[in-house]
Design a protein around this nucleic acid. Structure first.
Length: 857
DNA sequence: CTGTAGCATGGGT
DNA sequence: GACCCATGCTACA
């Protein structure tokens, strides 16, 4: 290539040539003009070997050992920086996952005009000033050295400017550098990088500058087990160190490797938070990854930590696929209740919206195409509402997308951009999937304890374990007493948190309350004793606790002896076991120690189909005859998968309220050690026990009486209704809902003693329906059930109250009063758990306790 | 009556 | 005290 330049750009070159060719691209955007010989060497990849052999900065490929002149612009594209430290030649890198070489430098226009001045300015500024200074190029690549004289380590007179993306700057290096005198700064930074003792502790001022140590970033950058957040192929964003030389300003690019090459082989991987501190906060750009800064001058102020993208390797891989597109994680947001609600409006963080989404001047906004991780394209309406002289940006129509990603409140949506296409990518992350500390709790490690590389594992562990989930974090605090964990910037407000917690509980409890009703029983041969507290009789099992067992069918043997039928979990055959046998929740034929002939699944079933059918309707009666037929009814079949959960809880002692230790339970005034009464067993989550079926305590007796009255009234009313014209559609709906609730209540109340007794004694017509449908047509919507939530005097109080799929069994006023009276010792939380959560828990509790307001009873 | 759109409010930062 | 933003409120279809 011809050129007007008469001198070869290679200062080491003494040749003159008539033929000029293009070499590497200079920072100015022009290309180095090389003589033919130098150009050939360059094109052959032998430039550095030829001219730079005496220069420092040679490093070996970690894989093949090939020497590469790192830190030289000429060889810049021939290697990649490894996350764990070291370099790899491009050939090896391509073999091992890394897809692209160090990206090119950004176009010249992204550099600030006068580099030395810029550096000078920066050296005088604190981090805060930098952070708030608006757009800052994604990397400072000041003039450094030319290819012929790489003596940066000796000639540095201007400090390193560390513009690492959320990595090193978070360790305070940036500020420390800028605060110190150039020489000292260089030395310090060098030392820190070299000895791997970047301090994690940050002064408060740094936090004010939004330099918070995020636990997610506490992976030690100096250990090989560092787990990069971003793909390793984007090493340019990982670290950007610039070394300015006072002697030569117009020299070409000084890549990261130039610095690294001057350093010992310190593994540095600092590019996790591309869009965060220096990426987002300092520049407001978040464009570091792709080396482009946005040309527009919109607001790029600091972004709250909770919006920093915490995108994972997997996600990025998923987004990018095998393409060489560069992904720019923009921001993420934890879905609030309203975001995830039906309205389908995602409130966008203002700064994010303004920074990364198109400028909109009208509230109507514009449609925005967003692609999800599966490649499906969605079109949302990106718009804003005027709000207090400001704007509130929303993304409308996200519901289908959210649902498609199966996200809910508390989960996180991430926004990235695919370059160079500029495509917006929306991803989702379940709250439990990857800890997103910034979303919920940001954890700052204060002090030097956690700063050494040796703490890396601990920090990693923290990262792994800490989640937005509060209690998990508490665990961490216990595990890591040396760390001061500071919560801040909870993105979930109380309501959202509650929502999420309740959702979680709901999932669990929806299973458990049904299961519990069938599975919790008194231990064998244990007759509960009872005592009265404040006029209410409580039942307790001395020195023992209720157990969780597998549902069984009670029957009578040929000899007239009472037996149980239990179904094998594997082969589903029914096996006969003694009536007093306590069958574990996971029971298979091989556990059948009572009948060795049928201790294998291959053994024939003793029960004939006819016999089984005879018994199964009883199961369909569900709660009515639970003791006699506590088998697999529809509800239970649905819930059967939750058996394991429940059983595991019990086994692991997590279900303290069921079978675990009595510690940490609510205690009543007469509590004494070992007390296992229903109050003491009352777990916060509502996995309470129930009275035994044979219980004839005052409470149960009263309950039976009360239910009898209720049943009589309802039957009477039903008869009246049947004589009336068919109800309207809305009434039908209500009736249906009522029946649905009834079914849930079945499960809830199902096995209660009073229930059973009542069904046997007082409501003989109920609970003998052959099919569920028949039951629906039954004259009594509450046949065979006791609903403590229903006041006999307010029998119309059957309106559905559940909106979550689980029954909301709020207490009637009288029961509520009673409970509050009887459980004065409950703390507010326990009370809330007991009464406030409308998820069926209360139902279990109430039924379990069979606490009856005697006034109404 | 229900669902939605747009704005207002107020707690939190 | 300003700003952000989650969500409540209300008018409207």
């Amino acid at each position: 290539m011809s050129s007007t330049t008469e001198v070869c750009f290679n200062s080491n070159c003494k040749d003159t040539s008539e033929k000029w060719r293009r070499g590497w691209r200079r920072r100015t955007g022009e290309y180095a003009h090389l003589c033919d010989r130098c150009a050939s060497a360059y094109e052959d990849g032998k430039f550095c070997e030829t001219f730079h052999m005496n220069a420092s900065g040679w490093r070996c490929c970690e894989s093949c050992g090939k020497q590469i002149h790192c830190g030289c612009i000429v060889s810049f594209h021939m290697f990649v920086l490894l996350d764990a430290g070291g370099i790899e030649c491009l050939t090896c890198a391509k073999k091992s996952y890394i897809l692209t070489p160090n990206p090119a430098w950004p176009p010249p226009l992204h550099f600030l005009p006068s580099q030395p001045e810029r550096m000078k300015d920066l050296s005088m500024k604190t981090w805060n000033a930098i952070a708030g200074s608006g757009p800052v190029p994604w990397r400072q690549a000041p003039s450094l050295f030319n290819g012929s004289s790489i003596q940066a380590n000796d000639q540095l007179k201007v400090p390193f400017e560390v513009d690492v993306s959320g990595g090193i700057d978070r360790y305070g290096l940036c500020e420390r550098l800028s605060m110190a005198s150039p020489e000292i700064k260089q030395e310090r930074s060098y030392e820190r990088l070299a000895n791997g003792k970047l301090r994690l502790g940050l002064p408060e001022t740094l936090q004010n500058g939004n330099i918070g140590l995020n636990v997610k970033e506490q992976h030690c950058p100096f250990t090989s087990d560092f787990k990069p957040i971003y793909p390793r192929n984007d090493t340019s964003s990982n670290l950007s160190l610039g070394i300015a030389s006072s002697s030569k300003n117009e020299i070409d690019d000084a890549p990261v490797s130039a610095i690294l090459s001057q350093l010992p082989s310190v593994p540095i991987s600092l590019g996790k938070q591309v869009c965060s501190q220096s990426g987002m906060d300092s520049s407001g750009e978040g464009q570091i990854r792709n080396g482009k800064s946005r040309g527009d001058g919109r607001s790029r102020n600091q972004l709250l930590p909770r919006y920093r993208p915490q995108i994972t390797d997997e996600e990025l891989q998923q987004i990018s696929g095998d393409s060489k597109s560069v992904i720019t994680p923009l921001f993420e947001k934890m879905l609030s209740a309203s975001d995830a609600g039906r309205i389908g409006r995602l409130v966008l963080p203002k700064k994010c919206a303004e920074a990364y989404f198109p400028t909109i001047n009208h509230p109507e906004g514009l449609p925005l195409k967003v692609q999800d991780l599966k490649g499906k394209e969605w079109v949302f309406q990106f718009r804003f509402w005027p709000n207090n002289n400001s704007r509130m940006y929303v993304l409308e129509g996200i519901t289908p997308c959210i649902q498609s990603m199966q996200l809910q409140a508390g989960d996180v949506v991430t926004f990235s951009r695919l370059e160079p296409e500029g495509k917006l990518i929306m991803g989702g992350r379940k709250a439990s999937a990857v800890p997103s500390l910034d979303q919920g709790e940001e954890v700052n490690v204060i002090g030097s304890e956690a700063s050494s590389p040796g703490d890396a594992s601990a920090r990693s562990k923290c990262t792994d374990v800490i989640s937005v989930n509060g209690h998990m974090k508490e665990k961490i605090l216990e595990d890591k007493p040396v760390m001061h964990v500071k919560r801040k910037n909870s993105n979930l407000n109380a309501k959202s948190k509650r929502l999420r917690i309740e959702n979680e509980d709901m999932m669990e409890l929806k299973l458990t309350y049904k299961e519990a009703q069938r599975l919790i029983r008194a231990p064998a041969k244990i007759v509960p004793s009872s005592f009265v507290v404040d006029g209410c009789e409580f039942e307790e099992f001395e020195e023992t606790e209720p157990v969780i067992g597998r549902p069984t069918l009670l029957g009578i043997d040929h000899s007239g002896e009472k037996i149980q039928w239990v179904q094998c979990e594997d082969c589903f055959k029914w096996r006969k076991v003694p009536a007093n046998a306590l069958v574990p929740s996971k029971w298979t034929c091989s556990d059948n120690g009572w009948d060795l002939h049928r201790s294998m699944c291959s053994s024939a079933e003793e029960l004939t189909n006819e016999q089984l059918e005879e018994m199964l309707p009883a199961m369909n009666r569900g709660p009515c005859n639970k003791e006699e037929s506590s088998g697999w009814d529809a509800d239970l079949c649905v819930a059967v998968e939750g058996l394991d959960t429940l059983a595991n809880l019990a086994i692991e002692g997590e279900g303290e309220g069921l079978v675990g230790s009595s510690e940490n339970r609510t205690k009543h005034p007469r509590h004494r050690r070992g007390c296992t009464c229903i109050v003491c067993l009352q777990p916060p989550s509502g996995k309470g026990i129930k009275h035994r079926q044979s219980c004839e305590c005052v409470v149960c007796t009263s309950l039976k009486c009360r239910f009898r009255t209720l049943m009589e009234r309802r039957e009477k009313k039903q008869v009246d209704k049947e004589t009336e014209p068919p109800p309207s559609s809305s009434e039908n709906l209500q009736g249906q809902l009522l029946l649905e609730k009834e079914q849930d209540v079945d499960a809830c109340v199902g096995s209660d003693t009073a229930n059973r007794s009542l069904n046997e004694e007082e409501a003989p017509n109920s609970g003998h329906l052959e099919e569920p449908n028949a039951r629906k047509l039954s004259s009594s919507p509450l046949k065979g059930q006791i609903d403590l939530n229903i006041q006999p005097e307010r029998e119309e109080d059957f309106s559905p109250r559940s909106d979550c799929g689980a029954v909301k069994c709020s207490l009637p006023g009288s029961a509520d009063r009673f409970f509050r009276q009887q459980h004065r010792s409950f703390d507010s939380d326990a009370m809330e758990n007991l009464l406030g959560k409308q998820d069926g828990v209360g139902c279990v509790n109430i039924i379990s306790c069979v606490a009856l307001d005697k006034k109404s009873g």
